[in-house]
């Protein structure tokens, strides 16, 4: 029996049309780079210390002294934004690194070994899936107190099953590919094939997904701070800034809330664009 190979007609009729997004992609990378640099070099970039109060300008609009204006306590918004980028970016980074490492290892184990290990891990993932990440983070706060540490650990655990399930599906698909059988026939050991060949082959797709996760985690951690359960004032943080500015919004002072909100949206859009572009370029869909 011959495997039907797609004929020219089929390829032409179904070819996904390549579209040029490189400019948008470059801009997105630029946004992330600028934000990262600002966060790292905050003391050099910010015009004022984040908690310096200017009593002459409370809820002031943009001016030469305060480019983005000030908040209800007279603190410079630009400076708080720059310092706030530190917690805003660090939290998601830790979560993405943690969940990717845990998830890839467990996913590789489940997908490669199969059998009862797969069944047990699958059940564990199922249970963890039932806890949406934000819920797990809120529960962690309820147990261990407010701040960034408990939510970051909770979210690493909450996101790990997503990474693991993706890795597992990819590994399972790779495992049935003849190239893996070919390695076996050549005498290579299972561990070598799994770690040296299969894992690197699935890493780009998992990496693209983790990039997308970064955006979600950033939004969720900022949301947690917005609820007053995450980063605590006076530490500058985008979510906390919006929380503090809420009362001002009802009074018509939009800027203190809008400035950090725009920052969140900008970074998340940029990260999403990067993640989607990466997965497009890799061209590997999630095997169902």
């Amino acid at each position: 029996m011959t495997t039907p190979t797609p004929t020219l007609a089929v390829k032409v009729l179904r070819a996904p049309r390549a579209h040029r997004t490189s400019l948008v992609f470059a801009i997105a990378c630029g946004v992330v780079a600028v934000m990262t640099l600002a966060a790292v070099f905050a003391p050099f970039v910010a015009p004022y210390p984040p908690d310096a109060v200017d009593f002459t300008a409370v809820n002031a609009g943009p001016s030469a002294a305060h480019w983005l204006g000030t908040d209800g306590l007279g603190r410079d918004l630009l400076s708080r934004l720059v310092y706030g980028a530190r917690t805003a970016l660090l939290g998601p980074l830790l979560v993405v690194i943690g969940s990717t490492i845990i998830g890839m290892l467990l996913g590789l184990l489940a997908g490669w070994r199969g059998g009862w290990i797969d069944a047990v891990l699958g059940r564990v993932f199922d249970v963890l899936f039932a806890f949406p990440s934000l819920l797990l983070a809120i529960m962690a706060v309820a147990l261990f107190g407010k701040g960034l540490v408990a939510p970051v650990i909770a979210m690493s655990i909450a996101y790990a099953p997503f990474v693991a399930r993706l890795t597992r599906a990819l590994v399972k698909a790779e495992r049935t590919r003849p190239y893996v059988a070919a390695y076996r026939v050549q005498g290579f050991g299972g561990a070598w094939i799994a770690f040296r060949r299969v894992l690197p082959n699935v890493t780009p797709i998992v990496g693209a997904q983790s990039t997308l996760n970064f955006g979600y985690v950033l939004a969720e951690l900022a949301g947690l701070s917005f609820l007053g359960l995450g980063v605590q004032p006076p530490t500058p943080d985008w979510g906390a800034m919006i929380n503090e500015a809420q009362s001002g919004v009802a009074g018509g002072y939009f800027l203190p809330a809008i400035v950090p909100a725009v920052a969140v949206v900008l970074v998340v859009v940029a990260v999403n664009i990067i993640g989607e572009e990466l997965s497009d370029r890799i061209g590997g869909g999630v095997p169902a």
């Binding site: 003849p178 070919a182 005498g187």
Partner: peptide
């Protein structure tokens, strides 16, 4: 494993899938 590999080798059906795409 090595002894077995030395005895028998195999060429698979689909050359598009039997080579590691990255190597």
């Amino acid at each position: 494993r090595l002894a077995h590999a030395k005895s028998v080798q195999m060429v698979f059906q689909d050359p598009y899938l039997s080579l590691d795409p990255r190597i």
